[in-house]
Amino acid sequence: MTPEEQSALLMRVSTGSWLIHALNAVAQLGVPDALDDEPRPVEEFAAGLGADADALGRTLRALAALDFFTEGPRGHFALNEAARLLRADSPAPLRAFLSVGVERVLPLFGELEHTLRTGRPAAEKIYGMPYFEYLDSHPEADRAFTRSLGRSAAAFFDTALDRMDLDGARHLVDLGGGDGTLIELALRRHPRLTATLLDRPGMLGAARERMREAGLADRCALVGGSFFTEVPAGGDVYCVARCLHNWDDDTARTLLRTVRSAMALDARLLIVEDVVAEGPATATAGYSDLVMMLIGGRERTLAEYRALLDDTGLALTGARPIGTVAAPRLHLVEAVPVPPE
């Protein structure tokens, strides 16, 4: 490694934490939405955003030096391709990811040493209980978490539905469906489809509001409960989207066994999750797995998903990449019940 490469590596390491805070701050102010390709003086747009021009200009200069935003004449700034991803109308929901990162993820990494020493999730030390128990007992934090996930989920759920064969489906059961983003998109696409959403009781308010505003409340039943204890019967398609990676293997097996017990033999299970490639991890896959480790879950390879399904009375029948900008490793993993012997 050359001295220049060493310096670049040290810069990337040392700027990681402040960079996410700085990007999140300017995104929340709406700076990317106020700019375009032509440089504008910071004094021209700072006041309209409720920002101090000097502080904002210095922050944008620092971000431009790391290739976020472009600095023209001193104090003049414009969007570049990286900064354009921070706009509210960007198809890649980087703004939502930054918000979740600052509010939820960075505190977890502050307790990474605890996890390394004990093998226990950092979330348990921070919150004094498992992460999702904390959300259950703190409704406002639960609602904020749901809103953040909903903003980021819409971008890849729509693409996931392109891969799902729901044309002949009658009833979709979405397990851990959050604010109902996936179900709303599915019901809009398939007018004869009905649905049930199961999630923790504290999550149902956001889903109820979404279904009402979309005019879909009469086609979607909302059920409060735990998919570890009971899953609604009657679905011909069951979906677990972005949930299994929240849990360790033993807990994931409990979830899948509960799902299997509710499924008829002609039903299908659709799992929407990142699938990690075999071999050395990429930087983004490694980071994602660390985040899940800190809350008590893990990312998995296709072989690991196959093993979970084999252990719980289900058979893997296919896996198709979804691959959006926001979630490049996302796959649709399909399984069916194994008939009892």
Rank of each mutant, 00 (worst) to 15 (best):
M1C: 09
M1P: 11
E4K: 12
S7N: 11
A8N: 04
M11E: 14
S14F: 07
L19D: 01
H21D: 00
A25P: 01
L29R: 15
V31K: 02
P32Y: 13
D33Y: 07
P39W: 07
E43Q: 06
L49R: 11
L56V: 03
R58Y: 02
L60N: 01
L60G: 03
R61D: 11
L63S: 03
A64M: 10
A65K: 06
F68H: 00
P73M: 11
A78D: 03
E81C: 02
A82T: 03
L86N: 00
A92F: 08
A92N: 14
P93N: 07
L94F: 02
L94M: 12
R95S: 10
L98G: 00
V105R: 00
V105G: 00
E111M: 10
T115Y: 13
L116T: 08
R117E: 14
A123W: 11
K125S: 12
G128C: 09
P130Y: 10
P130T: 11
P130E: 07
F132H: 13
H138D: 14
E140A: 15
A141S: 15
A141Y: 03
D142W: 07
R143I: 00
F145A: 14
F145V: 03
G150Q: 09
G150D: 15
A154V: 06
A160D: 00
R163H: 14
L172F: 06
D174I: 07
L175R: 06
P191M: 04
D199P: 07
P201Q: 10
G202E: 03
L204H: 04
G205M: 06
A206T: 10
A206C: 03
E213M: 10
A214G: 05
A214E: 08
G215N: 01
A217G: 11
A217S: 15
D218P: 02
D218H: 13
A221R: 15
A221F: 05
V223N: 07
A233V: 08
Y238R: 10
C239F: 03
A241F: 04
A241T: 01
R242K: 13
R242G: 07
C243R: 02
N246W: 02
A252I: 00
R257A: 03
R260G: 03
D266F: 11
A267R: 05
A267W: 08
P280Y: 10
D289N: 15
M292R: 09
I295Y: 12
R298S: 13
T301G: 08
L302N: 02
Y305S: 07
R306Q: 14
A307W: 08
L308N: 12
L308A: 12
L308R: 12
L309Y: 12
D311Y: 07
L314S: 13
A315E: 15
T317H: 08
P328T: 09
H331S: 14
H331V: 10
A335W: 08
V336K: 08
P340C: 03
P340I: 01
